[in-house]
């Protein structure tokens, strides 16, 4: 047998196959644990977004007439947004503490460290998949016609997954050093919820200034959510993302933030991964 250097722990140390085997196994077991470990199982993960949906639907159709006036299928629009955002929020906030929660394993065994945050995100993605089934059933029930562009939806989902994974990677290792990250992230996620067109469409100020639209489109989540809305609801009067951003150049900030987040997430995780066990 040939002698090989023992390089110590790293994000992907141990080989790609081991990474994917472990990732799959950990995500699936966690998913099963949540859904078969409780009496109501899957219902729990649906109840939260549905409650939020119910409250917001009432507020924005009965109290403020914002929703029903501007979007053809406001309930579907709202539910889609909530389900997508729930994935982002739950996956990232679960990831914050994931490495620290798995302390025992991290300090005592060797395995690709990246598995920890990514499996948390993947478990969230399984959830998202189930919730989306509800969204599509809902869409059909509300009279949204199925169109070919529904097939494009996975593109938006994959981009959202990538962004969520990158943010989760950064948060999970930053939390090891700075415990404030958990508190800060709760606030940031709350702000992001309102800074993303979930409750309101991006063109909420129809005949007025488009400054708000342009500002909103700096948020990469807005771009992803808006494109998902276009593909699924195919409303004739909804602006395209290019239009909402005020031309292709308007999309550059969102794209830059997206790429920046991905690069930052990968780099910082890679840098911190070998030291996690010592810092815990």
């Amino acid at each position: 047998m040939p002698l090989r250097d023992v390089r110590g722990p790293s994000a992907l140390g141990g080989g790609a196959r081991r990474f994917f085997d472990l990732l799959w196994l950990m995500s699936v077991t966690e998913f099963k644990r949540v859904y078969f470990g409780t009496v109501l199982g899957y219902l729990w993960s649906l109840i939260r977004p549905l409650m939020l949906f119910g409250v917001l639907l009432f507020v924005f159709t009965q109290v403020f007439k914002i929703g029903s006036n501007q979007v053809d299928h406001y309930p579907v629009f709202l539910l889609l947004g909530i389900v997508l955002f729930t994935f982002f929020q739950e996956a990232t906030s679960n990831s914050v503490t994931s490495v620290v929660t798995q302390e025992g394993v991290v300090r005592k065994t060797q395995f690709p460290r990246l598995v920890i945050p990514i499996s948390t995100v993947l478990t969230g993605a399984f959830n998202l998949g189930l919730n989306l089934v509800v969204v599509f059933i809902f869409a059909l029930a509300f009279g949204v016609d199925p169109v070919w562009s529904w097939l494009l939806f996975p593109v938006a989902a994959v981009i959202l997954f990538a962004l969520t994974a990158a943010v989760s990677m950064a948060l999970s290792v930053l939390y090891v050093r700075f415990r404030d990250v958990a508190i800060i992230w709760v606030v940031v996620a709350q702000v992001l919820f309102y800074a993303t067109p979930i409750l309101y469409p991006v063109n909420f100020k129809e005949h007025h200034s488009t400054t708000y639209e342009h500002l909103l489109m700096i948020n990469p989540l807005s771009v992803i959510f808006e494109q998902a809305r276009i593909w699924i609801l195919h409303e004739p009067n909804a602006p395209t993302i290019v239009h909402a951003a005020g031309g292709w150049t308007g999309l550059i900030p969102a794209f830059a933030i997206f790429v920046g987040a991905c690069v930052f997430g990968v780099l910082i995780f890679n840098r911190e991964a070998p030291k996690i066990a010592e810092q815990l």
Binding site: R4, R7, G104, V105, K108
Partner: peptide, 26 residues
């Protein structure tokens, strides 16, 4: 066991390793 990284120096090993730093970890 590749849980910590060396600050300096090298470790070389042949074959597959199974570390049992503590029974039942994981």
């Amino acid at each position: 066991a590749s849980i910590y990284r060396t600050d300096s120096g090298t470790i070389r090993m042949a074959g597959r390793l199974a570390p049992f730093i503590e029974l039942g970890v994981g």
